[in-house]
């Protein structure tokens, strides 16, 4: 895989190159980075794939600690404390929920440069069922000290995030899905940690989304709104922490209302983070689109599950209209 060249025009075959799951883009990027950065250390928890892709090329920079996530994060803290740059590989729920205390005490508490790169976030595990879903991980990890939290919206952004954060001095949580998702970005771009990406300009309301399908659905909702004569700004809020409060302030001021969209429960995640800053500094109406409280044991694929839970372009558009019309 070639580099993401910043501020270059879209390349030939761009879409084909990224017609892969975000986690695949991450893995290839990590291998590429390790070719020039001997600090990189890949710590696997028997995820499958890394042992050949990374382990065979860099056997001295790879360990598989087995199916043991608490130990995974403790080992990574020890490696980072000794000057290496460990990448912990596991499933979102297993890092944020099962090994939460190691994440809190050993990784975040020590402000160590551990990169916790998780897959199967949100409802991306689809038919695997609720044990493999992670609908509360953002709420958990964003409360941890020093933790940077990033949710890339597609494979291209994933590569950009991984490249942009190699020298981040503290801990990082990168939240990825499982399967391939639509490509949102049309070409390489200069990813800026903590700066929301404007995907569509608008003035009647702002849709703030994080994660692959939420961003796609927000763009679809903006189309629905346009047909009804309303223009919606769409922000890809890829960084949950630190949150881009400047972009949110501008959205509140210039568009008068915000709808948040996430593949996460409605409490504690993006919607909550947006409400915290809006309520304190930029009061305006906010509606939160996310998964309602309840154990989601419906069997379906990712997008279907989101729609079943009430996260779809129509619900986003309806929430936006309720804000925009409320002002009229």
């Amino acid at each position: 895989m070639s580099d993401v060249r910043t501020e270059a025009p879209p390349e030939q075959g761009w879409a084909e190159r990224y017609a892969v799951p975000a986690r695949e883009a991450y893995r290839r990027t990590l291998v590429d980075l390790a070719r020039s950065d001997p600090r990189i250390f890949c710590v696997d928890s028997d995820m499958g794939g890394l042992e050949t892709l990374f382990g065979e090329e860099f056997p001295a920079q790879y360990v598989n600690v087995g199916i043991a996530e608490a130990n995974l994060l403790g080992v990574c803290a020890g490696l980072a404390h000794s000057g290496l740059r460990p990448y912990a590989n596991t499933i979102a729920s297993f890092a944020a929920a099962r090994a939460c205390e190691q994440l809190k005490v050993d990784v975040a508490g020590n402000n160590l440069p551990v990169r916790v790169v998780v897959t199967h976030a949100g409802l991306s595990a689809g038919h695997y069922g609720p044990t493999h879903h992670a609908l509360e991980d953002i709420a958990i990890v964003r409360t941890l000290p020093h933790m940077t939290v990033v949710v890339p919206c597609d494979a291209a952004e994933t590569e950009a995030v991984v490249r942009a954060t190699t020298d981040l001095p503290g801990p990082l949580y990168v939240r990825l899905g499982r399967g391939a998702t639509p490509l949102v970005n049309e070409g390489p771009y200069d990813f800026r940690l903590g700066e929301a990406r404007l995907l569509r300009e608008g003035e009647n309301v702002t849709l703030v989304a994080t994660g692959p399908y939420p961003v796609v659905m927000a763009l679809e909702a903006a189309e629905l709104l346009a047909r009804q004569g309303y223009s919606a700004r769409v922000l890809n809020m890829h960084t949950i922490k630190p949150l881009d409060t400047v972009a949110l302030g501008r959205a509140a001021r210039e568009t008068g209302g915000i709808v948040t969209v996430e593949d996460h429960v409605r409490v504690g995640g993006l919607g909550a983070a947006v409400c915290e800053t809006v309520a304190e500094d930029h009061p305006c109406p906010v509606r939160r689109i996310g998964v309602p409280d309840g154990y989601l044991d419906h069997v379906a694929d990712e997008r279907q599950l989101l729609e079943y839970a009430g996260v779809h372009p129509q619900s986003i558009a309806a929430a936006a209209l309720s804000i925009a019309r409320g002002r009229e």
């Binding site: 403790g74 803290a77 404390h81 190691q102």
Partner: peptide, 17 residues
């Protein structure tokens, strides 16, 4: 229950370095 994992990470790092 945290210390032995930390020590394991340190020992791996010292070997690598």
């Amino acid at each position: 229950g945290h210390g032995l994992s930390l020590g394991t990470g340190v020992a791996l790092a010292m070997r690598r370095l």
